[in-house]
Design a protein around this nucleic acid. Structure first.
Lengths: 114, 114
DNA sequence: CTATTATTTAACTTAGCAGTTAATTATCTA
DNA sequence: TAGATAATTAACTGCTAAGTTAAATAATAG
């Protein structure tokens, strides 16, 4: 996976990783804090691996404090991803307009107007 | 890959597929239209597969016109993806604020103010 | 029916991801 | 130093994704 944008989207393409980011958006957390909600379903090394994917995408930074590794959210890649999607805003607003127009012509011929 | 959001992000995690979407945002195109920019680097079946990934994510719809399959962009999954990211807007605006504050304290002590 | 164009499917290879358990490293505390 | 806690690394498995070439299907045109 060559480029940053691909790495970011790939990192987001997993519900566990998205949940980790959601948790980090509420503040710093250690690896075991982050792992705790998942330990019924997966092992700690699995969470470590997910964090590594998020780190490589630049979405998470890991610090050191004694034996803990406090993690923080880094939003810059998210901004880049949204930025890439913004280029489609025109296209999707057109689609909403078409839907709008369609719904209007649809109601025009029925008894539901008014 | 269970859920729609994961499928959408996974579909976006490839530069070829993003380029296909970019082309479709400029209007309807057939499979060979879409494939043409890539045929130096990959085969036509490879493009067919990429399109299938985009279809399964709901990002592309394929019609029929004689032997051609005209493809169109479907932006709804993109809206969902942006919607998911919006929940981090608060977090990332805080980051911008912190950066801002940092830059201000940094300039305060230098000769660069004014 | 045959040939041509557009696209897909089949069968296969290669590589990487997500998970596991067991062992290792890092750090603090007694 | 020994033991406990936090986290990572190693080695392995199973699955899926991305690409290939060759064959099959869909539709048109002669």
């Amino acid at each position: 996976m060559q480029d940053n944008l691909s790495r970011t989207f790939a990192a987001l393409a997993d519900p566990t990783r998205r949940a980790i980011l959601a948790q980090l958006s509420r503040g710093e957390a250690t690896v075991s804090d982050l792992a705790q909600p998942f330990l019924k379903n997966m092992s700690l090394p699995a969470v470590t691996k997910h964090l590594k994917v998020l780190e490589k995408a630049g979405l998470v930074s890991k610090g050191r404090h004694a034996q803990w590794r406090p993690c923080t959210l880094n939003t810059e890649p998210l901004r880049d991803a949204v930025g890439w999607m913004e280029q489609y805003r025109i296209a999707w607003e057109e689609q909403l307009d078409r839907l709008d127009a369609y719904l209007q012509t649809k109601t025009k011929g029925t008894h539901h107007d008014l």
